[in-house]
């Protein structure tokens, strides 16, 4: 199901993958230096999934993300400075320093938020798809979720309801074979595609390291969902290069598994394709340097950002604080 992307299209996907990779490498260093508060879950190794899928989306479409959501946010087009400022806990952050890495959201671009609850984004995406359907917006919603969320009851509820209501919803599974410290085979007795079959939902497995393959599969499925064919399942086989969280010693993981994961590099897959198309190494390096410069500028701006305002946070518990006592 490979559709040919032209050079310019593939370069653009490659650029977004580099943006995610370099942003997270930068975050990893910032975390090591103690500049990032809290938990940090990096998605290095799975950049092709959000990039391939979001490239198939349109401006009004929506995505609900996970705890490993930096790639979804950047691929959906959130503001880079607001992104770094949020993760560093600054007032200028997308969420004014109230959410951090696990809650990055930008409703302006249809990014409904990373989510601290495994499976928490699934019914949100379903509701968003319902809104698209009822409002005839022509939009599609994407629920990104990890293989770990397959064991949550809410996934099964959502598959059922989305199928019953023929919602314009893409279930996008990022199957990296691990949920925290446990391998998939100890977590899940079924197969996602077989579940799709049980609910009458078309399901496809794809190599999540190949952005062109992801993009092609997503294109077809999103077009079907948009056209009224109901929900679709795209299971992307992917890899987790880093620990579950930054600082995770990964004692539960043997060296072979890690080496396996790193042997598939979505950036190398795509840069090789670009070179085969005749794009020079120099052009690719120039693009990478430009991305790195944007990231450095965003980091520098975030570092100069203000501390979040406590009174403003306290005033934002409700949209409309009513005329009574809340607490």
């Amino acid at each position: 199901m490979r559709i040919e992307l032209n050079q310019q299209e593939l370069l653009s996907l490659y650029e977004t993958m580099v943006l995610i990779r370099r942003s997270e490498e930068r975050l990893s260093r910032l975390f090591g230096d103690g500049e990032v508060p809290g938990f940090l879950h990096l998605s290095i190794g799975k950049e092709a999934v959000p990039v391939g899928i979001c490239a198939a989306l349109q401006a009004g479409d929506s995505v609900a993300s996970t705890h490993r959501g930096h790639g979804h946010a950047l691929a959906k087009g959130v503001d880079l400075r607001g992104f770094f400022a949020e993760i560093l806990g600054r007032e200028e952050g997308l969420c004014r320093g109230r959410g951090g890495s696990i809650h990055v959201a930008d409703l302006r671009v249809g990014m409904l938020g990373a989510n601290g609850i495994v499976g928490g984004g699934l019914p949100l995406a379903l509701g968003s798809a319902l809104a698209h359907q009822v409002r005839r917006s022509g939009g599609v919603a994407v629920a990104f979720f990890g293989d770990g969320a397959m064991s949550e009851g809410v996934l099964h509820e959502c598959l059922n309801l989305a199928a019953l209501w023929k919602l314009p919803l893409l279930f996008a599974c990022e199957n990296n074979g691990w949920s925290e410290f446990s391998p998939l085979m100890r977590q899940f007795a079924a197969q996602l595609c077989a579940l799709g079959n049980a609910f009458g939902i078309p399901a496809v497995q794809v190599d999540g390291s190949d952005v062109e393959a992801v993009r092609a599969a997503a294109n077809a499925m999103i077009a079907s969902a948009r056209g009224g064919a109901g929900p679709q399942i795209l299971e992307c086989r992917t890899f987790r290069w880093h620990g579950h969280y930054e600082g995770d010693p990964q004692k539960y993981r043997d060296a072979g598994d890690l080496a396996d994961a790193r042997s598939r590099d979505s950036l190398l897959v795509s840069s090789a394709r670009l070179e085969a198309m005749g794009v020079t190494t120099e052009r690719i390096r120039t693009l990478e340097r430009a991305v790195e410069a944007r990231i450095e500028a965003a980091v520098a701006a975030a570092r100069l950002g203000r501390a979040p305002d406590y009174a403003a946070a306290a005033a934002d518990v409700y949209t409309r604080a009513a005329g009574g006592t809340h607490g």
Binding site: A64, S128, R135
Partner: peptide, 12 residues
């Protein structure tokens, strides 16, 4: 899912 979909629909 009823409650979660309500959140997503409200955001939508």
């Amino acid at each position: 899912t009823i409650a979660g979909a309500a959140v997503g629909a409200a955001l939508g």
